[in-house]
């Protein structure tokens, strides 16, 4: 299969829902191309979270400099669900952090695009290694503590976990401490696609109700349709507003998404958690993603 990556990139600014939809489609196309080339990797979660990543990296939500990824004034993003890295790589490439052509190296020997993020490989914009579920969110809390309590900056820290990932007890230890330390600069995004490897969340190990748990843990809790840009932007705006007001409460955004969003035969099907499309499936996916 002949796979080409466009060299269009998108600057990071406030955008309309229409513009963000187009960017998210480009991210989804890149994910399918990367995975068909890699012949392994996770399709479902990344496709489902593409809208959120379009907003974060190119909708003006996070402050970052693509040419200076270590810019000290940046907001930080920690992917706690490390297996979902194809969507982060695709979003960062579309935001101009590194050449899009490099997406073709996913999961190959010596690539900067490791199967799970490896900080040692030096990909611009990757703040931490991750892949062992339930750790990233604690790292994010540590960063938010450093920013708010020690350096007293206005930096914000975002972290995304899956919903199966919520079964790791350490996630709730992180949540407890985010509220305890009054980290209104911390935004926890939960990708609530109701799928994990062995099946539906309630069948594998029930973590519901998630919203009530987050509230009880002291979070400003916002439940949104994770494919609706008005709701996505509204939730991030609310987080930023709360941070500016200094409410002393961290924010949890529970984004209801569909695993495999945008590709008919993958949508809402947990069997697509960890598989790549074959060539024929990738061709069909790319036909659908326009």
């Amino acid at each position: 299969m002949n796979v080409e990556f466009s060299d269009i990139t998108f600057e990071n600014r406030r955008r309309t829902a229409q513009e963000l939809t187009e960017i998210a489609t480009e991210i989804r196309r890149d994910i399918m191309k990367m995975l068909v080339l890699a012949k392994s990797g996770h399709s479902g979660g990344p496709l489902g979270a593409s809208d959120i990543f379009a907003a974060l990296y190119m909708g003006g939500v996070m402050r970052h400099h693509k040419d200076n990824p270590h810019w000290s004034g940046r907001d930080r993003f920690v992917l706690s669900a490390g297996h979902m890295c194809p969507v982060q790589y695709a979003a960062m490439a579309n935001a101009g952090f590194f050449p899009k052509q490099e997406l073709s190296t996913l999961r190959q020997y010596n690539t900067r695009l490791q199967g799970h993020p490896g900080r040692d490989m030096g990909l611009p914009g990757i703040e931490t290694s991750s892949g062992s579920l339930g750790q990233g969110i604690s790292i994010a809390v540590g960063m938010a503590m450093s920013d708010k309590l020690l350096d007293k900056t206005d930096h914000r820290v975002f972290s995304l976990t899956g919903d199966g990932e919520l079964q790791e007890g350490s996630v709730w230890e992180a949540a407890m401490s985010a509220a305890h330390f009054g980290l209104d600069n911390f935004c926890w995004i939960i990708d609530n696609n109701d799928c994990q490897i062995d099946g539906r969340i309630r069948e594998v190990m029930n973590v519901y109700p998630i919203d009530k748990k987050c509230e009880a843990f002291g979070f400003e809790t916002i439940v949104i349709d994770g494919h609706n840009f008005e709701e996505i932007m509204g939730a991030f705006d609310k987080f930023i507003e709360n941070n500016q007001k200094g409410t002393g409460k961290p924010t949890a955004i529970i984004a209801k998404t569909y695993m495999g969003r945008g590709v008919s035969f993958m949508e809402d099907n947990f069997k697509w958690h960890g598989n790549p499309p074959n060539e024929q499936q990738a061709e069909q996916a790319l036909e659908e993603l326009v």
Binding site: L133, G134, G169, I197, D198
Partner: peptide, 25 residues
């Protein structure tokens, strides 16, 4: 949660009453 990859799914299919899914924990 990875019962297929580590093949405990074989036991789960045969003895569902003696299999417990604990989730990612």
């Amino acid at each position: 949660d990875i019962t297929g990859s580590v093949m405990t799914s074989l036991f789960k299919d045969k003895f569902p009453d003696r299999f417990f899914s604990i989730g990612i924990a």
